[in-house]
Design a protein around this nucleic acid. Sequence first.
DNA 1: TCGTAGATAGAAAGCGCTTGCTGTACCGCT
DNA 2: AGCGGTACAGCAAGCGCTTTCTATCTACGA
Lengths: 348, 348
Amino acid sequence: MTVTLADVAARAQVSPATVSRVLNGNYPVAASTRERVLRAVDELDYVLNGPASALAAATSDLVGILVNDIADPFFGIMASAIQSEIGGPGGRAGGERLAVTCNTGGSPERELTYLTLLQRQRAAAVVLTGGAVEDAPHAAAVAAKLRKLGEAGTRVVLCGRPAVPDTSAIALTFDNRGGGRELTEHLIGLGHRRLGYIAGPEERTTTRHRLEGHRAALADAGIEEDPRWTVHGPYDRRAGYEATLELLRRDPSLTAVVAANDSVALGACAALRDSGLRIPDDVSVAGFDDLPFSIDAVPALTTVRLPLAEAGARAGRIAMGREEPPPGGIAVIRGELMVRGSTGGPRG
Amino acid sequence: MTVTLADVAARAQVSPATVSRVLNGNYPVAASTRERVLRAVDELDYVLNGPASALAAATSDLVGILVNDIADPFFGIMASAIQSEIGGPGGRAGGERLAVTCNTGGSPERELTYLTLLQRQRAAAVVLTGGAVEDAPHAAAVAAKLRKLGEAGTRVVLCGRPAVPDTSAIALTFDNRGGGRELTEHLIGLGHRRLGYIAGPEERTTTRHRLEGHRAALADAGIEEDPRWTVHGPYDRRAGYEATLELLRRDPSLTAVVAANDSVALGACAALRDSGLRIPDDVSVAGFDDLPFSIDAVPALTTVRLPLAEAGARAGRIAMGREEPPPGGIAVIRGELMVRGSTGGPRG
DNA sequence: TCGTAGATAGAAAGCGCTTGCTGTACCGCT
DNA sequence: AGCGGTACAGCAAGCGCTTTCTATCTACGA
């Protein structure tokens, strides 16, 4: 039925062992023999049986990338960068790995399931991207899994995600707190005193850190925060739209709206426009991430640029063992404030 | 070192065969025995060895999704929908499959490599999304691979991609030609006679079909097309920006610009604005796909909505054998014209 | 009471590949 | 000529699981 190593061996008049060695190239094989084998492989159109190979060698060439939302470019860009450093042609020959992206949809259970599935496949490496969920039992479960994976020889890298103590996981963390702070400081510097904040889902680390940065900036400026100024919601446009209407309802005197990310900010802009408010004349808007479309908003979005592609590429290289992990296993990656048209001085 | 089936069997005082049967649940096992086994699994924290299982059973639980550009929401949205129908918890218990997304980056070689890798892993199903490359040798190679995959029992589904003759692949094709035609008819109906077209990469089927629709509409209206009105480029914002400047240079009298997709259209808008032209007063702009951000452009983008999520979900279900394939193995999915603010009557 | 069907459990033969160890030439050297 | 060394190639033992076939036991009807 399907062509096996033995078939190739028979055709090339050598033993299966020799064929295996030719294919893996980690053992001396005479040039003439090698050629004969390769010809047989070609003629028979042989395809290695991955599971069998993985079983015998006790390793596989799978690398898993976990993302919270594959439809969100924030993750897409990172995944793309990670994958480009990992897989397919382009890596050195023989180093071909199947980089696979798994979409958790932000669900803790799915995250765990995928981790188990990857563990099952004896993945060579796993990269987890984006914010983590802060539920204690879940965090513990994830930590345990990561530890297991590490022990089984799977390299674990966190990209844009907080470090997990007591594991061998390498963490490339974004400075969400610092970025959030800088953004709000910018707004305060422009003269704003009443700032709405549209936060992400409550339980995400990303959400908390950005919000903490925002609050720190307010505190530093001696601005007392009104609880009505914060609204939580998912990380999408629609949530931004609705949250903005809610914010406006609660306090029509707000002069600025800071959003959890760019998608949310876009929704906020739409809501503001639909409410007859001008940006930034009536209300300033700021986002986070600097996704590609942010510059196309009108006016262009003031935001914090996160080096998604660079971080992803680095994570990919570390996962492949092609770059030294940062000292201590943790690197903090800073964002860069991008001041654009959507923010200006407050009216009046 | 690692816990194996045999360890569990020993602990539960049964044979490995029984443990396997409990885990796979396809053979009668006494309730008491089952419970004992499950307890042992739990206590030992046993994780099935995927490769070994795949080897013995000659099938795996991997489902591959091939995308051209994972950073592009067009693919992200489809992948997300496909994956949601396929994998992780949510499917029936035991039907757990690892849905993995592979990013070809639009490269034919990578596409082939991933297909081989997936074949190697004995994937349960493969979904290919987005336009295909029209290079003849490559198309033949892909067709051959798909045939092989089909023969090996892997279900192959094409989502938003033209059918491949002589294979068992199920095709869910977008009516790019019809959509392109409708869009241009809309513009012509508004009175436009000089329309620029920013096409995608030459060799993609998507590019060709959309362009053909555009040209058909022009021909129907008796408009003779000027070759200078068409510019090719990648499917991204930057390409749209540059192509628009080029178009304007070639013929400043254009009253409308039709873009290959929404990202390109956004770039076009930016270029127009930077050139001091108003949209749609001076120049109308239209996109394709109706990605989420298109409605946030100012003015909102006129475009053709493709039911990406629905198509992806359907492809996913077909790949899982949970939905009947369309008769003849081919379904054409139509887009819907979304008329918004970026198109209007020509000036003067 | 005995035979037999039905329900479970086990033994064992692989699935296709990798790899440690064991040959077997053939080389250059003393 | 005789010997150690090197360079290949093959043998065979698994890797951890699934599954067919067989064995055992129980329950019943005759």
